[in-house]
Design a binder for these strands. Structure first.
Length: 706
DNA sequence: GGGCCCGCAGGG
DNA sequence: CCCTGCGGGCCC
């Protein structure tokens, strides 16, 4: 790699990750979420380990509001730059561009991409510096002028509207792109570079560029960005959340596939309609902003934008629907950004323990979630919309993760025969948010717009249109969307999201750990060592001991030897000594041929196994009370013993006294051996699942915890 | 990339 | 308590 020392000194200091997420300092991609830090101002990702200590946020909770060195105060920005040019931002820019040009490891395409990233970041910086505090801001020329034509659409030569960026680094309006490439053309109109077929069929909007253009426009028109910070497109890694999604002991698979939800950060009730305001965001105090993007549905859930982690519709049939997810699950969906056609849920065969199924096999009806959407349509409620990168057919879907795109109103709904031949419920969503959409360069939110003409309405049945005035509507005087009628009163706990079942279950599980351990000790403690028995022996007088402990009690006159000596004299001699350590009953005869209580051993083993799994899990979800667990596990750990129980016969033919039977019965009664239960699923298919055991004590504790 | 699997969350 | 569900991990 041939780099000039000048550029090297710049490169080796403070550089973010490039557009592929690769750190420009160490050339590696951050491997963990916590390794990556996103600037709150220019939304550029940075590799935390390559960031000088002085530039790092002091605490994890500061990470959300962290500004990168480029966006921070000029003194800190300019400090590492070469002194002669420190007052000229373009020199930093030029040095970075030179470094890219000199980097032999990059292809021309990669260079173009990186150049553009840096220019974009640079235009952000210069425009962000146009804050109200600097009076001469508009006279300061930006380091890179977004209006100089470089970023223009290669077809209409205007600043791109809903920009699509090709791998060769050229921009197009979405419309121009679609027009240009709809007839089989696959060469860039600018450089004749090849456009990947996937991009031709499914172009994606470059929302970062859209936002950069928006900011530049706002800065030029002298319109101050509220707070000086673009309130759009934050990538939330949820890295400083106090509680993450976790896997329970029941989940056989790791990761999020079968995980419980983490804490809900926002304090709106789960049936809250409309945007989530700052006052319900105690951790960040800014609310959920349009453009916020999460890694997955679980993270999205934790910020309240869309609560169900599988289902596409959140709602209640008699009350309304609060949010929907556009994830490409239904082929009939049609996305036009500001408006889209959504398909209801149901009509699918979910037998065989499936959660989703691409095939429609029966008609959808306006019931359950579909009815909830219809209620929202009739009342004119705002419905939050999230788009997922899993939606491959929409230009408006994010490249990665799940993004909050603001609120929409359902203007009408109907049923029609879908592409798969069955009737589906259909909904016309039209955007009505006060914040601009992530794909637009407009500096304002939505204005009321004429409804699009829907061709399929011709063949529609069961059409529902709102008659009354909508609850959420545009106020011409105030120039924004607001509640014209009071929002529906929450039917859930006000102020906070009610404890979700997963959290209740988590508490119950912790209680259950304690309960299992307590039971183990209570029922299966050796009466000599007071620990859970290893190779339990049960005497005729119904006392339990570890084999090793009982042997030890008669050390020097092991009953094994005694058993070998069958002489009456020897027996008599031992009789004085061979008394039960608990009750002093004569157990000499028993000791002639003691059998390990295998039933009891089985129960102990399964309980130990369960307790271990439970405590492993609870220590994962809350790494507190380690000491308690250590102490408990020490007690629970059976006493050391060699496994030479081969000395005993295996033919347990009811010789055992009935005390172990009693215990066994008791254990069974208390469900602690977790009987298997059959769970019915649709169409008669069955799967097994362990029955959850929560006894009264546990429930009391749960109540106390709440 | 498609199919299978399955814990969870929430509605009714 | 049963049913549903526009996830996500893993195997092939």
């Amino acid at each position: 790699m041939a780099q000039s020392t000048d550029s090297n000194s710049v490169m080796s200091r403070r550089l973010p990750c490039d557009s592929d997420g690769v750190c420009m300092v160490c050339k590696t991609k951050p491997t963990t979420v916590t390794d990556s830090l996103t600037c709150n101002t220019c939304i550029t990702p940075w590799h935390l380990p390559c960031l000088p200590e002085s530039d790092r946020p002091p605490t994890l909770s500061d990470a959300h509001n962290w500004c990168c060195p480029d966006c921070a105060a000029p003194t800190t920005v300019t400090q590492p730059l070469p002194p002669p040019s420190s007052d000229d931002p373009s020199s930093h820019l030029m040095a970075s561009i030179r470094a890219i040009q000199d980097d032999d490891s990059l292809t021309d395409q990669q260079k173009a991409k990186k150049r553009m990233d840096i220019m974009l970041a640079s235009s952000n910086i210069s425009h962000n510096s146009n804050n109200p505090s600097s009076s001469s801001s508009s006279s300061v020329p930006p380091a890179f002028d977004i209006f100089d034509g470089t970023l223009n659409c290669s077809i209409c030569m205007q600043l791109p509207e809903r920009p699509v960026t090709t791998p060769c680094g050229h921009n197009f309006c979405l419309k121009c792109f679609q027009k240009c490439f709809s007839q089989g053309n696959r060469k860039c109109a600018n450089c004749r570079g090849a456009i990947p077929p996937k991009m031709v069929s499914n172009p994606r909007i470059n929302s970062q560029l859209a936002i950069a253009i928006r900011l530049a426009k706002m800065a030029r028109s002298g319109c101050a960005v509220p707070g000086g910070v673009p309130k759009v497109y934050h990538f939330i890694h949820n890295q400083d959340r106090p509680d993450t999604a976790f896997t329970t002991e029941r989940a056989k698979k790791t990761g999020l596939a079968n995980a419980c939800s983490g804490k809900i950060f926002v304090t709106v009730p789960p049936d809250h309609f409309g945007p989530i305001p700052a006052e319900n965001d105690p951790t960040r105090n800014r609310g959920v902003l349009v453009g916020e993007t999460w890694m997955n549905r679980m993270d999205c859930r934790q910020w309240g934008a869309h609560l169900p982690h599988v289902a596409g519709i959140a709602g209640q049939s008699a009350y309304g629907a609060q949010s929907v997810a556009l994830s490409g699950g239904y082929v009939d969906d049609e996305d036009h950004g500001e408006w889209f056609l959504y398909t209801g849920s149901g009509g699918r065969d979910l037998s065989g323990n499936k959660r989703t199924n691409k095939n429609q096999s029966f008609d959808q009806k306006f019931e359950n979630m579909n009815e909830a959407l219809r209620v929202s349509c009739l009342k004119g409620y705002p419905v939050r919309v999230v788009r997922s990168s899993k939606e491959k057919r929409s230009a408006y879907a994010p490249d990665e993760g799940v993004r909050y795109d603001g609120v929409y109103r359902i203007e009408k709904c109907w049923r029609k025969v879908g592409q798969q031949g069955c009737k589906v419920c259909r909904y016309l969503f039209v955007r009505c948010d006060n914040e601009p959409a992530p794909w637009t360069s407009d500096d304002h939110g939505d204005k009321p717009r004429a409804l699009p003409k829907i061709k399929e309405l011709k063949g529609a049945v069961d059409l529902t249109e709102r008659k009354a005035a909508p609850s959420w509507d545009y106020d011409e005087e105030k120039g924004c969307w607001l509640w014209k009628r009071p929002p529906p009163e929450s039917r859930k706990s006000a102020g906070t999201v009610s404890p979700v079942k997963g959290q209740i279950r988590a508490v119950k599980r912790k209680v259950k750990v304690a309960s299992v351990k307590e039971k183990l000790l209570k029922e299966f403690a050796c009466q000599i060592c007071r620990k859970v028995m290893c190779n339990p022996l049960t005497t005729p007088c119904a006392h339990n001991f570890c084999k090793a402990c009982l042997e030890g009690a008669f050390s020097g006159q092991s009953f094994i030897r005694e058993r070998a000596s069958q002489s009456g004299r020897s027996l008599r001699a031992q009789k004085n000594i061979m008394r039960c350590p608990s009750c002093q009953n004569d157990i000499a005869e028993y000791l002639q041929n003691p059998q390990v209580n295998r039933q009891m051993m089985g129960i102990i083993e399964s309980l130990q196994c369960e307790a271990e799994q439970l405590s492993e899990n609870s220590s994962e979800s809350s790494d507190k009370n380690d000491e308690n667990q250590k102490n408990e596990s020490e007690v629970l750990k059976p006493c050391e013993e060699d496994d030479d129980d081969d000395n005993y016969d295996d033919n347990d033919d009811g010789n055992d006294d009935d005390s172990s039977e009693k215990v066994l019965e008791e254990i069974k009664d208390n469900d602690l051996n977790l009987p298997q239960k059959r769970r019915k699923v649709a169409k008669g298919a069955v799967v097994t699942m362990e029955e959850e055991h929560i006894d009264e004590v546990e429930q009391d504790s749960v109540k106390a915890c709440n």
